[in-house]
Design a protein around this nucleic acid. Structure first.
Length: 582
DNA sequence: AGGCCGTACTG
DNA sequence: CAGTAC
DNA sequence: GCCT
């Protein structure tokens, strides 16, 4: 059955189901979506799954191009030529600007209630400029008063992000009726594989872990009014912010515990290390707890919250304060936290400096008492504020697109993916995290790409400082860490960037690894496998006396797709609704 | 009582 | 090797 | 710190 034929069966299959859904679950209602699938059809199942998802979210699924009706085209870099073919055009720039082209990720974010403007999901570089200019024009129209800053996404796109998405009258669906923890974004490739098992995994993970959610490394984004209120009409509520940030009924508790966690993580010693680890987990679960915690047993019912933390929570609930916090924030801790804001400085260095009498960043800069900095720490100190700042989503998008553009001139078959908080739909990003690989079906690899790319990016002055360069630049697996800037204008902020390449056979493993490191790895290890960024290893033998010690590393099962890894680990890759399928 | 993720780069 | 970052 |  062709995709078109399949689409025709959807009303029979899901029509009734959809008609029963409450309005706020029809995340895509009013959208006329043309879904462009991948031709190799190796993953027809993927196409069907996605069509199901689109239909069930209330979208109008188009099977042919009608410029009068289509509002969105879901595509990827890989499907560009299919787009041209389906639309009967020769270049994507011929598409009218009112039709949005987006990656599948946009769909996922819509369903999660994350409402970033479509520009951020533009799969085609050649279309970016015209689309963003069109958006800028629109923005200028309803915002004539603001003195526009020049940079192209900064003003227009970001403003749109902060106000609202046009054409989506629906308010973001917060927690639905009853408890529904924030569903983490899926990781479908915006520019490659056509199938997305990760969304399904999340469903499964929710069932397995119940309240236990993935920890979120992000520091809370303090959305203070002062930060955004310059310009009277700006709303400081970030519409694109994650669904759970504003609505958490236990935010005060979370904040206090976070402070405590920060204190422990600033101290040296393995005890504090594990306490930090523990807090991270309990805090993540508290964030996801759907109602106000009122009693000790409420608190204890949350996974990762034990006796001690429950008592602390009750103290916060009853007094609004945590006595321990005042007591704990001693001078050495405060200074150590300050020092550890320097990239490359951890607890050991910070306390060593403190014990040598250093107290301020000035002291450090002046090399007081003969302290010296490593090269990395010099950079970390010089750009202390920049590195600890978060960048607007638009800036991450812009930098990534520039880099992708350059990379594709090196090798047009490269696969690039932006990971991290950008991919998770955050409104601001702490860094830019780029995954790089290349299919090997033509016998070539990306073995020399990292070297050339880094050189080019330095030449273009996009990369400015190296923090860590791979030992072997020709290795298919290599990690680069550094600083970058969106343009060379003086005073541009320096942003943290990581570029990591993986062998193509490890793509599936890498995507999983960087998304679900904890639960997935845990399950793998329980089943006698081991999952790392290279992929899945089988036949791992662990010392029964010390599960950490591997007697045998096992052998790499190379080239597994994500689906195969799911299968092996016994994680059903189908969403509940798809199992209903006969 | 002992595990809690594992890996790579820097100096 | 310890320290650091992810 | 929590969990087994």
């Amino acid at each position: 059955m062709s995709p078109v034929q399949y689409a025709a069966t959807l009303p029979d299959k899901w029509g009734e189901h959809v008609s029963k859904l409450p309005r706020n679950k029809l995340y895509l209602s009013g959208k006329c979506i043309l879904y462009v699938w991948n031709e190799p059809s190796g993953s027809m199942q993927g196409t069907r799954n996605k069509m199901d998802i689109l239909y069930k979210a209330g979208a109008r699924l188009m099977t042919e191009y009608d410029p009068e009706r289509v509002t969105h085209i879901v595509a990827s870099l890989d499907t560009q030529k299919n787009v041209l073919q389906m639309c009967g055009i020769r270049k994507v720039t011929e598409l009218p600007v009112h039709i949005k082209t987006v990656t599948w990720e946009w769909i996922v974010h819509q369903i999660q209630g994350i409402n970033h403007t479509e520009i951020y999901y533009e799969p085609f570089i050649s279309r970016m400029k015209q689309v963003s200019q069109a958006a800028k024009g629109e923005a200028a129209k309803d915002d004539a008063s603001s003195s526009a800053k020049p940079s192209y996404l900064e003003t227009s796109a970001r403003k749109r992000e902060e106000t609202d998405d046009e054409g989506s009258p629906k308010k973001k669906a917060k927690h639905g009726p009853g408890f529904q923890p924030l569903q983490p974004p899926s990781l479908d490739a915006s520019s490659s594989s056509n199938f997305d098992p990760l969304a399904e995994f999340y469903e499964q993970a929710k069932l397995m872990d119940e309240f236990e959610v993935e920890e979120d490394e992000e520091k809370p984004q303090a959305v203070t009014p002062s930060e955004a209120s310059e310009g009277s009409k700006t709303r400081w509520q970030c519409d694109g912010a994650p669904v759970n940030s504003g609505a958490c009924p236990n935010q005060d508790i979370v904040d206090k515990l976070l402070e405590l966690r920060e204190i422990h993580s600033a101290r040296q010693g393995s005890d504090d290390m594990w306490r930090t680890f523990s807090y991270r987990k309990s805090i993540a679960n508290i964030k996801a707890f759907p109602k106000r915690i009122e009693s000790y047993s409420d608190a204890r019912s949350i996974k990762g919250v034990g006796d001690k933390t429950a008592l602390k929570i009750m103290e916060i609930v009853q007094t609004g304060e945590l006595e321990r916090l005042k007591h704990a924030r001693t001078d050495d801790i405060v200074v150590a936290q300050l020092f550890q804001g320097i990239y490359g400085v951890g607890p050991a260095t910070a306390f060593s400096w403190y014990s040598q009498g250093l107290r301020t960043l000035e002291d450090v800069k002046n090399g007081k008492n003969g302290v010296s900095l490593s090269l990395v720490q010099e950079i970390g100190l010089k750009f202390y504020d920049d590195i600890n700042d978060r960048m607007p989503r638009s800036e991450a998008a812009e930098i990534f697109c520039k880099i992708r553009q350059i990379a594709l001139t090196i090798d047009a078959k490269l696969y690039m993916e932006i990971m991290g908080s950008f991919r998770r739909g955050k409104a601001t990003c702490g860094d830019i995290d780029i995954l790089l690989t290349r299919p090997t079906d033509d016998g070539k690899t990306h073995h020399d790409v990292m070297r050339v790319l880094l050189r080019r990016l330095h030449e273009e002055e996009i990369l400015t400082y190296d923090l860590a360069t791979p030992d072997d630049l020709d290795d298919l697996e290599a990690t680069y860490r550094g600083l970058c800037q969106v343009d060379t204008a003086p005073g541009r902020r320096q942003r943290r960037i990581d570029i990591l390449s993986v062998p193509y056979g490890s793509l599936g493993g890498a995507l999983l690894y960087y998304t679900f490191n904890r639960s997935m790895r845990l399950k793998a290890s329980h089943m006698g496998y081991s999952l790392n960024q290279r992929g899945l290893y089988k036949g791992v033998v662990r010392d029964p006396r010390d599960r950490n010690k591997k007697l045998s590393p096992g052998t790499l099962m190379d080239g597994l797709s994500e689906k195969e890894i799911f299968d092996i680990l016994g994680v059903p890759w189908q969403e509940p609704h798809q199992r209903v399928r006969s």
